[in-house]
Every structure is written in structure tokens, then in C-alpha cells.
Simulated scan of single mutants.
Amino acid sequence: MNSAPHHDPTQALPPRGWLRAAVVAAFAILFVGAGVGFVAFLSQLRATEAVPAGKADGIVVLTGGSSRVSDAMELLAGGYGRRLLISGVHPTNAASDISRTLPDNQSLLQCCVDLDRSAVNTRSNAAETRRWARERGFKSLIVVTSNYHMPRAIVELSHAMPDVELIPFSVIGEKWRDEPWWTSGATLRLLLSEYAKYVAAEVRVRLADLGLELSPEVAEQITGSSPARKAAAN
């Protein structure tokens, strides 16, 4: 009488089957990790504007979003900083162009506002802000930008200026106030794109801390940064 054939569980899947299972498991882990990270990213975003926790030596506003500059001017008028840097002004924008959009702040624009026309992305915003803060001897800054952009801005600024205290002031756009982000496809796409750039910035900064500095070209490809200029009059 022949005995039953021995079943080896290690042969349950052919080699290709094991490889396929490993790839699927890896993608599943990455997907879950990305989802958890996205939730953590969203938890950093303010839903309402709040008065800064305290005053600072200076104020920097990163251009590119609705009402960022006007909100920064209000902080300057309120005495929250001694000077304001508007970083990322388009080269064709003159001070008079900004003045026309802020008619109630002419005296402040003339005495206490500096324009940076060199920055073209968040990383160069940080570099120009560092130069400005060092020239002025500032040790604390209020950072003004949109709420969805704030996490990445703080990553770049804190890396460029580890010795400067950063106080975030998140600007909340009208769309964010009017409807939940998950009901708008455009807002969801914006958040997903910003989350990817935020993760890439975190990776680049951590590699730089280990002495592995990426070239500007590679860094721009990773973060999705573009050299497109942003107008300041908004």
C-alpha cells in the first residue's frame, strides 16, 4: 500500500508567487504609512486664524496665497514685529504695485517693509529669510503663510535658521472656511500635493543633517518645486 504523498508547506507558492506576495505586502505597508502620515499632516493645519503666541523681532511672509501679505501687514501694524520681509516678490512688481493693494498701510510700507525678489520656492524663501534675519540681527520671526503650506515652510526655515525662534501665523483661505476640504476635489488635490512636498522636504532636510546634501536640481525634482515666480500683491 502506497503512503500518501508528503505535502511541503514551503512549496505552497511558486517563487513568483512569493515575490508577488512580498511586493503586495510592501505596497500595502507604504499605503498605510502614507495614509497615517497624511492624517498627521492634516492635524498640523489650523482651521482658524489665531493671534500669534507672542511678539517677535521681525515678520516674514511667503507670497503665493490669498491675503498673506495683507495679514502680515496687519501684524506689523499691530506691533508684532519691528520689520516685515515680503519674500518671493515677482521681479516686475514694484513697491508701488504693493502699495496700491494696501492703501491703508503706506507709512509702514515706506519705513518698515523689505522686498525679496530672489526667492522662487520655499527653500529659497528660507535662504533669503536667513540672510535678512542675520543682517538685521533678528532672533525671532513670525512666519506668515497659508495653513496648508505652513508645515513645509517651518521645515525649511528651521533647517536654514536653527538658532531663530519661529512663531507660525497660518492664513486661512476663504475656500477652507466655506467648505470642508474633503468635499472639494481641488482642495484635496492641493493637500495631497503639498503633503508630498512636505515629506520630500523632511527627507531632504534629514539627509542634509546626516551630511548628505542633495544638489538643487535633484532637490527640486524630489519636492516638485518649480522656478515659477509668485506675485506678492495678494
Score class of each variant (00 low, 15 high):
Ser3Lys: 14
Asp8Arg: 07
Gln11Met: 14
Ala12Met: 09
Pro14Glu: 12
Ala21Trp: 13
Ala22Cys: 15
Val23Cys: 05
Ala25Pro: 12
Leu30Ala: 09
Phe31Pro: 07
Val32Pro: 02
Val32Glu: 05
Ala34Leu: 12
Gly35Val: 02
Val36Ile: 08
Val36Trp: 02
Gly37Val: 02
Ala40Ser: 13
Ala40Lys: 15
Ala40Gln: 14
Leu42Trp: 10
Gln44Cys: 08
Thr48Gln: 15
Ala50Ile: 05
Ala50Trp: 01
Val51Lys: 12
Gly58Phe: 03
Leu62Gln: 06
Gly65Phe: 05
Ser66Gly: 07
Ser67Thr: 15
Ser67Gly: 12
Asp71Thr: 11
Asp71Pro: 10
Gly78Met: 08
Tyr80Arg: 10
Leu85Pro: 04
Ser87Met: 07
Ser87Gln: 04
Ser87Val: 03
Ala94Lys: 09
Ala95Leu: 15
Ser96Tyr: 07
Asp97Tyr: 12
Arg100Leu: 14
Arg100Ser: 15
Pro103Leu: 00
Ser107Asp: 14
Ser107Asn: 15
Leu109Asp: 02
Asn121Glu: 09
Thr122Lys: 03
Arg123Trp: 11
Ser124Leu: 12
Ala126Gln: 06
Ala127Trp: 13
Thr129Met: 14
Ala133Cys: 07
Ala133Arg: 07
Glu135Thr: 12
Arg136Asn: 13
Phe138Met: 09
Phe138Gln: 05
Lys139Ile: 03
Ser140Gln: 02
Ser146Thr: 08
Tyr148Pro: 01
Ala153Ile: 11
Ala153Lys: 00
Val155Phe: 04
Glu156Thr: 10
Leu157Tyr: 02
Met161Tyr: 09
Asp163Leu: 02
Leu166Cys: 01
Leu166His: 06
Pro168Asn: 00
Ile172Val: 11
Asp178Arg: 15
Asp178Phe: 07
Glu179Arg: 08
Glu179Phe: 10
Thr183Gly: 05
Ala186Leu: 11
Ala186Asn: 13
Leu188Lys: 14
Leu190Trp: 02
Leu191Ile: 06
Glu194Phe: 06
Ala196Met: 03
Val199Arg: 09
Val199Gly: 00
Val199Gln: 03
Arg204Asp: 07
Arg204Lys: 12
Arg206Lys: 06
Ala208Cys: 03
Leu210Trp: 09
Leu210Cys: 08
Leu210Gly: 08
Leu212Gly: 01
Glu213Met: 04
Glu213Tyr: 06
Glu217Met: 01
Val218Tyr: 11
Ala219Gly: 07
Gln221Ser: 13
Gln221Met: 13
Ser225Glu: 07
Ser226Met: 13
Ser226Gln: 08
Arg229Lys: 11
Arg229Met: 07
Lys230Leu: 14
Lys230Val: 15
Asn234Met: 11
Asn234His: 13
